[in-house]
Design a protein around this nucleic acid. Structure first.
Lengths: 194, 194
DNA sequence: ATATAATCGGGGCGCTCGTTCCGTTTCGGA
DNA sequence: TCCGAAACGGAACGAGCGCCCCGATTATAT
């Protein structure tokens, strides 16, 4: 009912893939503020070509965020499966590092010029659900204090990404991460301050 | 040597004050992205008048940030004088609340489109020095762990402001602040998890 | 009151960027 | 090989914004 999606012509499919790849790298490195013309130039196509595949700049950004979210969720599932108690910390600090490596996703996450829940409600719900799950596992394992919910974790991710973006050097975060870790630890657990 | 600063004409002084006041409120509420024309309109003057008093948009923003920093520093000195052990926490969470009430200062602080250290080196140095002082007092009082420096505190401020901006409702931060507080607490102090 | 200079206001210039348009090129089935 | 459809690319349009210009206005010293 929605559309008839005939298969793309070979050159069209190639160009679409190039645009997606270049746009991902560019948004990650420089954020959503980069002009479409610049992305087209780097991809070696005209601006018109970009707009044929993605009717608006936001739709291109959205497509990339959706794909990145998929990867993030997938990786998080692996981590929590490997070590339920440690999963939340691993995921949290990995998300923090993305403050430096994927500026576009960080902006989307913080709601800067992009409403994640409105644009990609399904992906957002899946992510929030996953957060709740990872948190519950860690709390069951006794590594994280029990008075926190998934929304608190999302808030912490936004804060950690901002800190990581502010501090160019990940070495310098060495002393900040333990502060968060200690603060999150369940009283009496190994990470709690003695 | 710098300039001849003759006294301003009465109407000029009045307009300058109006522009500063309106610009402060506007930047605080909506960030540095607001057009100069809009600020001029709200102040009831023409754009040309704004530019006679402040030769560039950035210079206006800078003037406001400088003034706000002065107020912040002054207030912090009072707080740390009143209670050295509690001073750092009070200041930290007050700065966090500014994530919601003063978007302009928050952006300047996080280095979003504005290089604080380059634009206002003296104010920045004074702020950093104050951070070191407040931190040292808290560490001496035994309320904050000793392996942190002033740069870590600035990083935490940036993160906390981002979290506060992300969470519109300060009620919702009730569970996040204790996490930070516990994480910062010196082992064995009252805030450390038992 | 008048002259003089400071100040004002807002239209306009130049630039950026998202988006569209259309003449030209390329693909791929017959 | 040939042709119609699909895709291309980049010039061009319009909106937004920082900043400048200049004729009109107003404050202030005399």
């Amino acid at each position: 009912m929605t559309e008839k999606s005939r298969p793309l012509r070979a050159d069209a499919a190639r160009n679409r893939a190039r645009v997606l790849q270049v746009a991902y790298e560019t948004f990650a490195a420089e954020g959503a503020g980069v002009p479409i013309d610049e992305i087209a130039r780097r991809a070696g196509v005209g601006a018109g070509t970009v707009y044929r595949h993605f009717p608006t700049k936001e739709s291109l950004f959205q497509a990339i965020v959706a794909e990145r979210l998929r990867q993030v969720v997938e990786r998080a599932r692996e981590q929590v499966a490997a070590d339920p108690g440690e999963g939340l910390y691993a995921f949290l600090f990995q998300m923090a590092e993305q403050g430096a490596t994927d500026l576009g996703l960080t902006e989307a996450f913080a709601g800067i010029g992009f409403d994640l829940a409105a644009a990609l409600p399904d992906a957002e719900k899946e992510f929030t659900g996953l957060m709740a799950e990872i948190l519950a596992q860690a709390q069951r394992a006794g590594t994280v204090r029990s008075d926190l919910d998934a929304a608190d974790i999302k808030t912490l991710i936004v804060g950690l990404q901002a800190m990581r973006r502010f501090r160019g050097d990940s070495e310098l975060m060495r002393r900040v991460y333990p502060v968060i870790r200690t603060g999150l630890a369940a009283p009496g657990s190994a990470d709690a301050s003695p």
